[in-house]
C-alpha cells in the first residue's frame, strides 16, 4: 500500500531467500536455522513519535495505521517487536534502525506468545 519501500525490504515474505540465509546460518552452532528472531524497538525520551512512525512506514512499508500502532506500543509499553525473520534479516533491519537513530535490538523469538506471528509479514 505504501509505495516508498525503496530503502526497505519486505520481512519474511521471500521463502527462497529465507532458505538461503538459513543455510548460511547453519555454520553458526548456536543458531538453528528455523528459530525466528525478533527486531525490538525500545522507547526513549528523545525520538519524535512522528519520526518513529515515519521510519516504520518508509523503511518497512507499513501502513500509517500499523506504523502508529507499533509506535504507540513502543511509547506506552517501553518496547515493541516490529519485525521478525531469520537472524540475518533482523540484524540487517537493526543496522538500518541504528542508522535512523532508533534504539533497536535483536533477540531470539520466545516460543509462542511473544512472536508477532503473521503480523510481521503483513505489508501496508
Amino acid at each position: 500500500m505504501t509505495p516508498s519501500v525503496a530503502f526497505g525490504t519486505a520481512i519474511g515474505t521471500d521463502t527462497d531467500e529465507r532458505t538461503e540465509t538459513a543455510q548460511q546460518a547453519s555454520t553458526d552452532v548456536l543458531t538453528a536455522p528455523d528459530i525466528p528472531w525478533n527486531l525490538v524497538i525500545w522507547n526513549d525520551p528523545v525520538n519524535l513519535m512522528s519520526y518513529v512512525s515515519f521510519v516504520f512506514q518508509s523503511y518497512f512499508g507499513y501502513s500509517e495505521a500499523k506504523a502508529n500502532k507499533l509506535m504507540m506500543e513502543v511509547h506506552k509499553k517501553g518496547r515493541s517487536i516490529v519485525a521478525h525473520g531469520s537472524k540475518e534479516q533482523v540484524e540487517q533491519h537493526a543496522v538500518a534502525m541504528h542508522g535512523f537513530g532508533l534504539w533497536a535490538t535483536v533477540e531470539k523469538a520466545a516460543s509462542g506468545n511473544d512472536a508477532p506471528g503473521k503480523d510481521g509479514s503483513t505489508r501496508g
Binding site: 540484524e91 537493526a94 541504528h98 534504539w103 533497536a104 535490538t105 535483536v106 533477540e107
Partner: peptide, 8 residues
C-alpha cells in the same frame, strides 16, 4: 546512543 548495543 548513536551506536547502541544490538543485543540486550
Amino acid at each position: 546512543r548513536l551506536l547502541p548495543n544490538a543485543m540486550k
